Simulated scan of single mutants.
Amino acid sequence: RIIYTGPVEDVVAHFEGLGYEIPKRMDPADWLQALPTEDGANFLVQPDEEVSLPAPTHLTHEQFVQKYNESKRALEIIDVLNTPALEEEQSKIKGNFTFTRKYMNSKLRSLKLLIDRETLLWWRNKYQLKARLFQDILMGVIVGTLFWQVGADAQTNVNAIVGVLFQTLFFVSLGAMMKIGDQISTRGVFYKQQDANFFPTWSFILGRSIAAIPTAIIDALSFGTIIYWFVGLAYDDGADVSNYFVFLLICLFSAYTFGLMFAVLSGAIRDKPTAQGAMAVATVIMILFSGFTVQPDVIPDYWIWVYWCNLFAWLLRGLMVNEFQSGKYDDESSNNPDNTVGEDILKQLGFSLGG
C-alpha cells in the first residue's frame, strides 16, 4: 500500500498539505517513518486557541493511501497506466529475452573485484591492523624475554626450545580463531549478493582467501622475528640464516592455513556461539594430538591416525626439524655414535626419522 511516490523534494510538502508539520530539528526520513504510526499524531498542526475549530485527527494508513490516490500526481500516474501502450513498446515488452550469462562479469574480473574489495576493507580497518600488530609485538616480547637466549645453550635447554616452538604455533592458531566473528558477520552480505548473481561462490572464497595473506604475513614477520632472535634459535654454529627464513615460512603457512581452516568451520556452522565452541574443540584436539602434549610414540595405535592427520602436528614437526637438524646439532651423540645430537633429541621426543 503506497502512501507516496514521487520526487523527493515534494514529499514533505505533500504531507504538510495533509495537516502535518515537520519539527525544525528532525530529520525528514525519521519524520516520514513516524507519520503512518501512532506517533504521527504528534506532528499534526494544532489550530490557534482563538479560532474555534475542531482538533485535527490523525489519519489511518488507509486514509493516507486514499489521500495520495486523490492527489494530482497519483491521478497523472493512473492516467498514464491506463493509456494503451504503443505497438513498438508492446513488442519490446512481449519480446523474448534470452540470458546467455548468469553473471555479468567474467570469472577473472569477478575474482579481481573481490580481491580488491576484501583488500580495501582490510586496509581501511586501521584500528584492527594496529591492534593486531601491537598484539604480535607484545606477545613476541613477552615470550621472547621469558625464554631469553635459551638457544645459546640449546643442548641443555631442549625442553624450553620445544616449548617456544609449540607456543609459536599456539599463538598463531589463537589469532586465526579470533577472526571467526568477522567471518560470520559477512555471511549475510555474501548470501544477498550471491542471490543477486553478483559473482560465483568460488570467486568469493578464493578472493577472500587471497586477501587474508597480508594478515598472515604481519603475524609471521612481527611475532616470528621477535621470537627467533630473542630466543636465539639456530642461526650459527653450523646453522645459517636460511633456518630463520624457513621458520618464518612455517609461521606464515601456519597463520594462513589455520585462518582458512577456521573459515571453513565458520561457513558451515549456523551461529557464532556454536562456531566458537567448535573452534575450541578443534583447537583442543589439535593440541592434544600435536606431539607436544603427548609424544607421538606414546599415542595408542587406535588414535595415531589423528596425529598423522593433524595439521598442527605437521607444522610443529617442521619447526623441530628446522631447529634440530639445522647443523647446529650435528655433533656426534654420546648415547648413539650413529646419530647426531639433533637426531637423538628428535628420537627422544618421540619423532621417528627416515620412516
Rank of each mutant, 00 (worst) to 15 (best):
D116S: 09
R117I: 05
E118T: 05
E118S: 08
L120K: 14
L121P: 01
W122L: 12
W122M: 09
W123L: 12
R124C: 01
R124V: 06
K126R: 15
Y127G: 10
Q128T: 13
Q128M: 14
L129S: 12
K130Q: 13
K130Y: 15
A131K: 13
A131Y: 07
F134Y: 11
Q135D: 12
D136G: 08
I137M: 07
L138P: 03
M139V: 10
G140D: 02
G140Q: 06
G140N: 05
V141M: 11
I142E: 06
I142G: 00
I142R: 03
V143M: 13
T145I: 11
T145W: 10
L146K: 06
W148Y: 15
Q149V: 04
Q149G: 08
Q149S: 09
G151D: 02
G151E: 03
G151I: 00
A152L: 13
A152I: 10
A152Y: 12
D153F: 09
D153A: 13
D153P: 07
A154E: 05
Q155Y: 10
Q155F: 10
N157D: 10
V158W: 09
V158D: 05
N159T: 12
N159R: 12
N159L: 11
A160N: 14
A160M: 11
I161C: 08
G163L: 04
G163S: 14
G163V: 08
V164C: 11
L165K: 09
F166I: 05
Q167I: 14
Q167R: 06
T168N: 11
T168G: 13
L169C: 06
L169V: 06
F170A: 11
F171P: 00
S173C: 07
S173E: 10
S173P: 01
G175C: 05
G175D: 01
A176M: 02
A176I: 03
M177W: 05
M178W: 07
M178T: 14
G181E: 10
G181M: 11
D182K: 09
S185G: 07
T186S: 14
T186K: 15
G188L: 08
V189G: 05
V189P: 01
F190G: 00
Q194L: 07
Q194S: 10
D195I: 02
D195P: 00
D195N: 09
F198K: 06
F198V: 05
P200W: 00
S203T: 14
S203E: 08
I205W: 01
L206Q: 02
L206T: 09
L206P: 00
R208K: 14
S209I: 00
I213F: 09
P214L: 00
P214C: 07
P214Q: 03
T215N: 12
T215I: 10
T215G: 15
A216E: 02
I217D: 04
I218N: 06
D219M: 13
D219S: 11
D219Y: 07
S222E: 05
I227D: 04
Y228W: 01
Y228P: 02
F230D: 03
V231T: 15
Y235I: 09
Y235A: 10
D237A: 14
D237E: 14
G238I: 03
G238S: 01
A239M: 02
V241S: 13
N243A: 03
N243W: 03
F245A: 05
F245Q: 00
V246Q: 07
L249E: 06
L249S: 14
L249W: 15
I250S: 03
I250T: 08
C251L: 11
C251T: 05
C251R: 04
L252E: 02
S254L: 03
T257H: 09
T257Y: 05
